[in-house]
Amino acid sequence: MGSVVKANRQLLKSKELPPCEGPKIAMFAHSRAPIEWLELLEKSTPESENSSQGFVFKVEILSKIYALKVFKFYDPSTERHIMSEMDGQTVTDELLAFHTDPFYAECRAYGCIKKVESERRRQIAARCHGFMSLRRKDELALEEMGIDLWENYPEDHEYRAQAEGSPVRAIVKDFIETAPDHDDNSLDLRTLKVILKNVRALNKHGILHRDIRAPNFKAGLLVDFGSAWTKPHCIMAVVPASVSEEWEWDDLADFDEMVEEEGFSLASVRALPNTSYLKRLRSWKV
């Protein structure tokens, strides 16, 4: 067993993740309980990427229904291109993974969301119950369903050669049930106004969602944080301040785009006073 695989196995035995400065979440209380795989709900696919981050399943654990997001494997150096060579000198691949790997991105975001929801006294996101690693039995079940968690990387990829055999990571969330005749992604004006308040609250507490769009909401709640950057964040800390400041606008600009895509007028609800102008400024959006 290689050193990378051993390190990943050890990490997934932690009581909390990720093991770095900033927010984190705890291991799911029933992480060793049997999983009944009921249904593949969807792939988790960021708008800015061609490949998915993972797969979301409807599962049953100890007679309770959950949404289980199973994450693909992720090369720690994937986001290094965002920084210049000089910027990134002090950022290790390990820290980059803890801040940008979709699995750890969700761990950090959900760790902070608890504080946001407590302060705001309202629910903002689908409730998170913790992280877990899958047992070999469940990994085989995924293989039988045709799920390839390495599909983002060819067999000869350097990181895959080092890390293949690592445990599969997952996060357990509430399963949000919707009426059969209701589109769970549909957003009305009232819901959009609540969502805007929630997005502003997330930003205020240091969470940049970076993927605000209708498919990431169910019953008005955010359900996916795989693209989120939560402060302190290693990339935001080393790039020029002007670049980091532009990124701070992205969620609000994306909200306005979502409003228009959903067929509403920005005169009814909008996040920014002049979206078209700010879009032209966002040359560093990633």
Rank of each mutant, 00 (worst) to 15 (best):
S3A: 13
A7P: 00
N8R: 15
R9E: 12
Q10K: 14
L17Q: 04
C20E: 06
S31V: 08
R32H: 11
A33H: 10
A33E: 14
I35F: 11
E39I: 02
K43N: 10
S44H: 03
P46Y: 05
P46R: 08
E47I: 09
E49H: 11
S51W: 08
S51C: 07
Q53W: 04
G54V: 01
V56M: 08
F57C: 05
V59P: 01
S63V: 07
A67I: 08
V70G: 02
K72I: 01
Y74Q: 00
D75Y: 03
S77H: 09
E79T: 08
H81Q: 07
S84P: 01
S84R: 09
Q89G: 05
Q89K: 12
T92F: 03
T92P: 03
D93C: 08
E94N: 06
L95S: 05
F98C: 12
H99R: 05
T100A: 12
T100I: 03
D101T: 09
D101Y: 07
P102C: 07
F103P: 01
Y104T: 00
Y104E: 00
Y104D: 02
Y104F: 15
E106L: 01
C107W: 04
R108V: 05
A109L: 06
G111H: 02
I113W: 00
K114T: 13
V116I: 15
E117S: 05
E117G: 02
S118N: 13
S118L: 06
S118G: 13
R120D: 10
R121L: 12
I124P: 00
A125S: 15
A126W: 04
R127T: 11
K137E: 13
L142K: 03
E144H: 11
M145S: 09
D148P: 04
N152P: 00
N152C: 14
Y153T: 06
Y153V: 03
Y153Q: 14
H157I: 04
E158R: 14
R160E: 04
R160F: 02
A163P: 06
E164A: 09
V168P: 08
R169W: 00
K173I: 04
K173Q: 15
I176V: 15
I176A: 04
T178F: 12
D181A: 15
H182Y: 14
D183G: 10
D184F: 06
T191P: 04
L192I: 06
L192V: 06
V194R: 12
V194F: 04
I195S: 07
V199G: 02
R200W: 01
G206I: 08
I207R: 02
H209F: 02
H209R: 02
I212H: 01
A214E: 14
P215D: 11
N216H: 14
K218Q: 15
A219W: 00
L221E: 07
L222I: 15
S227E: 11
W229R: 15
P232S: 02
P232N: 02
C234L: 10
M236R: 14
V239I: 15
S244M: 07
E248I: 03
D251Y: 00
D251G: 03
L252F: 06
A253I: 14
D254N: 08
E257K: 11
E260A: 13
E260K: 12
F264L: 07
A267C: 08
V269F: 05
A271L: 05
L272H: 14
N274K: 12
S276W: 07
L281H: 09
S283H: 15
W284A: 11
W284E: 11
